[in-house]
Computed example of a mutant assay.
Amino acid sequence: MKVFCYFVEPASYTLDLANHIYDDLRIEYCFIKSETLARSSKRSKKPFLDKMSLFSRVLFIFSQYRKNDFIIINGYNNYPFVLTFILNLFSFRKRFIASDSDTQLRIPTSLFKRFIKWFYLSIIFKNKYVLGFAGGSNSHKDLFRNYGMNEERIFLMPLMVDNRKFLQEDKRFPKIFTFLYVGRLVKHKNVEGLIQQFNARFIDEPAVLRIVGSGDREEYLEDRYSSSKVIFTGKKFNSDLETEFQNASCFVCPSAFEPWGLVVNEALSSSLPVIATNKVGASFDLIKDKNTGFVVDNMNDFGNRMLELYNDSDLLLEYAENACTLMKDHWNYDFYHKCLITAIKKVKKCQ
């Protein structure tokens, strides 16, 4: 059986996944976009659809549909998915199409948007030839269930980074307690709320908050909050980013909404306990009931949990060891490989 995959962009974690899993299974793939915010030193020689003419893109998608039996597409509302779905509607020889999604279930507040989303996703997800590849086992699967997909067509396809880049089994904590944030500096990441909680509790304590990243609120946040204790580093990639994780004590993810949050994978692999809001997708699979950190409902509780880990070195060490073990022994490429093979075998059986 021939399988093909459309990845969205050549982000560092996507290239690692493709190299370790898809290349190993001899699954061909391409990228919808050529640009990415998550830069990598690696370069892919695979096709980039946005570098093709419109006619060439359509021809490419049609060709892959014709040549393959099973097509995996990152997302469900981009043109490769829509065109592939339409081709399948009118084809006598049906292919199975998987929507690989990192999106949690969110019901729009606007009645109009809610109807449009329901109408579109119900058509897609109720189709018996469409599978759901959910990045997590909780709200990510609920997205497919809520819009009519049968349970037997929903598969966990764990969102993954190359843990081996970050693994730090013999964790050594810095002398000055270091909270680390890595991500974009945009409103829904709630970095300002994080800084306010830190300043309220640690202004007189030997602790620092390092903020790695950039975004449209960078200038505002830096002008207002930069100090010897709240340190803005700008963007960091590859080995520079790995060093930030290795030199930290605890990772913080205060987002008001986060579909998944691969930085949580990276932090846990680096033996860092993680404090995250319950809006962070990764929290359900990687933190909740795993004793690797805390999942909180509000920012006041967030600040209290920061203080708890700061004051309890035994708990900090326990969560650090659990974090490393979880990523090293369970949430890894072997697990992803097993999940993907399970889905492929199911498709083979149904053909």
Rank of each mutant, 00 (worst) to 15 (best):
G261C: 10
Q168Y: 14
A200R: 11
H188M: 14
F177V: 00
V191K: 00
L262H: 11
L209A: 07
R210D: 02
F179A: 06
K236M: 15
Y220L: 01
L209Q: 00
I203A: 14
Y181V: 03
K236E: 14
Q246E: 10
S255Y: 02
L241C: 04
L180S: 07
D170M: 12
K235C: 03
P259T: 13
E242P: 00
I176K: 14
V182K: 04
P206V: 05
F198G: 04
K187T: 08
N265A: 12
N238W: 00
S239I: 06
P206F: 05
S214N: 15
T178Y: 03
R201C: 09
N190V: 09
N265R: 11
R201F: 12
L185W: 01
P259W: 10
T243D: 04
W260P: 06
A248D: 13
K229F: 03
Y220T: 00
R217D: 08
E244Y: 10
F257G: 07
K171Q: 07
P206S: 04
S226E: 10
E169S: 12
S227H: 02
N199I: 14
A256M: 08
N265P: 09
L209C: 06
E266M: 12
I231Y: 04
K236V: 03
T178G: 06
D216L: 04
V263G: 13
E266S: 12
V186L: 05
I203F: 13
E244N: 06
L221E: 04
E192R: 00
G261T: 06
E218F: 13
